[in-house]
């Protein structure tokens, strides 16, 4: 157990360092329009749009291969933002690619996990920690909700759970007061 804890913390620390380093060292210069589009995409890296990640989708939009309404996590707000950026007319989300839904995060049932590392290899943002043959766990804060870890799990111990509203994430809603006919 101690070993597991130690490994996990070491991993967390190391990946943090690596990230900071990578961000500086591997800064990719690219097409400014692609950059702008990419900055608007939700970065779930889920592949629902039909591309391997948000950046590929951004490139496909610029190349004219993909339409602007293929990203379910971005939803209607995302489409409107893209339409505005590209000077096109907004259109509804193409249902072929999926439906917009509230954000969820993956949760591993730690009792059933066999420590096979397959989910770690699937996670596009390295949000799963665990050493071989030790139980794995998802860093909820980093999980984008892409669901890519579900399929590879041989014991089906990963579930998607809605992110519960807390006092700190709660928002005032749109006022409901209806305007009476004048």
């Amino acid at each position: 157990m101690i070993v597991a804890i130690f490994t996990l913390s070491a991993l967390a620390g190391a990946s943090g360092l690596l990230l900071g380093f990578a961000a500086v060292r591997f800064k990719v210069e690219g097409d400014p329009v692609v950059e702008k589009i990419e900055a608007m995409l939700p970065q779930s890296q889920c592949g629902q749009c039909g591309y391997v990640g948000c950046r590929s989708y951004a490139e496909a939009i610029v190349a004219g291969e993909a339409d602007i309404n293929q990203c379910p996590p971005g939803g209607n707000n995302g489409i409107i933002a893209l339409a505005e950026l590209l000077g096109r007319d907004p259109k509804p989300l193409n249902a072929e690619y999926g439906a917009e839904q509230p954000k969820r995060v993956a949760v591993i049932d730690e009792q059933s996990c066999i420590g096979c590392t397959l989910c770690i290899q699937a996670c596009p943002v390295d949000a799963i920690l665990g050493a071989a043959k030790h139980m794995h766990t998802v860093i909820a804060r980093e999980c984008t909700g892409c669901e890519l870890c579900l399929a590879p799990c041989p014991v089906d111990c990963i579930q998607m759970e809605p992110v519960a509203a807390t006092i700190t994430t709660w928002k005032w809603t749109y006022p409901v007061a209806e305007i009476e006919a004048a």
Binding site: A23, Q43, Q45, G53, T169
Partner: peptide, 27 residues
């Protein structure tokens, strides 16, 4: 209040998305 909350929430989402983008790239 609604508009302020919405702006804050979107700002936070943006920050999280940027973090995910960096993590993805690093991976």
């Amino acid at each position: 209040r609604y508009a302020k909350n919405e702006i804050w929430a979107r700002e936070k989402e943006k920050q999280q998305a940027e973090l995910a983008r960096q993590r993805h790239r690093a991976r």
